[in-house]
């Protein structure tokens, strides 16, 4: 946990500083000391303070742990996490993020039907279904979502390249 806390502390500080810097460029309201920059600045300040506190407390704990000779337990942690397992988990995570990003990119040009067929088949494969079953899931699912959202709820799902076939 100590390592992730260190990184999240740093990240909080950085994003707080960025938000603070952006907010300082906002115009202020005439006659009042508070303008549109006030709330983002409070949020940014809070983020920076939390980041610093998290960093300090993690570093202090680490130092104490090192003094106490707790290095053994640290090594145990690292061993129990198995690097190959972690790498596979983060690869699968990245793959799913890419699928969703692909869905966002392809939705307008390709149209809803093709995009969701591809995305759902890919997700099903990622979760461990075989190709045939993935198709058996994605085809009726796409059709069902089309009926539910497009036909019943009148959501204008884009047709994209299939526009000539739209119904």
């Amino acid at each position: 946990m100590a390592r992730t806390d260190l990184w999240s502390g740093l990240l909080l500080m950085l994003s707080g500083a960025l938000i603070f810097w952006r907010a300082s460029t906002f115009p202020s309201m005439a006659g009042l000391p508070y303008g549109p920059d006030l709330f983002p600045s409070i949020a940014a300040g809070g983020l920076m303070i939390c980041g610093v506190l998290l960093l300090i407390s993690t570093l202090l704990t680490r130092q104490r742990a090192a003094e106490a000779g707790n290095a053994n337990s640290n090594r145990d942690d690292r061993l129990s996490q198995r690097p190959s397992g972690i790498r596979r988990a983060s690869l699968r995570l990245m793959a799913l993020i890419l699928i969703v990003a692909g869905f966002g990119l392809a939705l307008d040009p390709l149209g809803f039907h093709l995009t969701s067929l591809l995305a759902i088949t890919a997700t099903a494969l990622l979760f461990g279904l075989n190709a045939l079953r993935a198709l058996c899931l994605s085809v009726p699912l796409t059709f069902g979502v089309h009926l539910l959202f497009y036909s019943l709820m009148n959501v204008p799902l884009p047709w994209g390249v299939l526009t000539p076939l739209a119904w």
Partner: peptide, 12 residues
């Protein structure tokens, strides 16, 4: 089976 369904419903 469940997760692909949940994903599509989330996005749409």
């Amino acid at each position: 089976v469940l997760m692909p369904i949940v994903l599509l419903f989330s996005l749409v």
